[in-house]
């Protein structure tokens, strides 16, 4: 474990907590893409298949449970919670994400570290996470003004993988045989997809103005 990866995991945890706060405090999920939440639930379920087979550390196991549990709880809340579900932007959140799921799974069948059930699903989860934010970014552009908590949620979600890139550089420089091309390339693509969001987020922060994404 290094400081970059810890910062990344903590930033990811913060993004989850901010989202839970927004939904719990405002009893609303307006501006949040259910599609992105469902993709993230798939990402964690596919990636943490080794939850019970490979024990890395208590920290690793606890964080996996937190990410799986929170993503499923948010999907449940947005679909079935009496009050929250009413504020879901159903007509704006129309990204046909099964295309992404199919493409990522096909890619995982071709490109993986080892051709085993667990490793193919692991690679699938890495590719899927890289594009999982797309429905959310599309929804932000369509829904115009973005409330603060939603903007902070997306910001932290994007920042966490940027910390992981620093972690991979650090491990590449300090560990003799460290090569994680699948994670690195996907992580770069994932972070790049946030580039324009980060730009508009920075502008809104500098001008102390509401976050506005161009339609």
């Amino acid at each position: 474990m290094n400081i970059f990866r810890l910062a990344g995991d903590m930033t990811h945890l913060i993004s989850v907590l901010v989202l839970l706060l927004k939904i719990y405090a405002t009893k609303s999920c307006s501006g949040i893409s259910l599609k992105t939440q469902e993709l993230y639930a798939m990402v964690f379920l596919a990636r943490y298949l080794d939850l019970f087979s490979d024990f890395i550390s208590l920290y690793n196991t606890v964080m996996k449970l937190v990410f799986i549990g929170s993503s499923l709880a948010i999907v449940w809340c947005m679909r079935y919670h009496r009050v929250v579900r009413r504020s879901y932007d159903r007509e704006l959140d129309t990204f046909r994400y099964w295309i992404l799921v199919g493409a990522c799974f096909t890619l995982a069948l071709v490109l993986h570290e080892k051709f085993s059930f667990q490793e193919v699903f692991w690679a699938f989860s890495i590719y899927l996470e890289a594009v999982a934010i797309l429905p959310q970014l599309v929804l932000l552009q369509r829904s115009g003004n973005v409330d603060n908590l939603t903007g902070q949620y997306v910001f932290f979600l994007g920042a966490y993988r940027a910390f992981y890139i620093l972690n991979w550089i650090y491990r590449y420089l300090t560990e003799p045989r460290f090569t994680r091309w699948i994670s690195c390339v996907s992580g770069l693509v994932q972070t790049a997809l946030y580039a324009d969001f980060f730009y508009y987020y920075f502008i809104s922060w500098k001008n102390n103005a509401k976050l506005q994404l161009p339609a």
């Binding site: 990866r5 990636r47 490979d54 890395i56 690793n60 964080m63 692991w122």
Partner: peptide, 10 residues
């Protein structure tokens, strides 16, 4: 070794 295969990152 085993730890090489197990993914130690989240």
């Amino acid at each position: 070794s085993k730890d090489d295969e197990a993914h130690d990152e989240l």
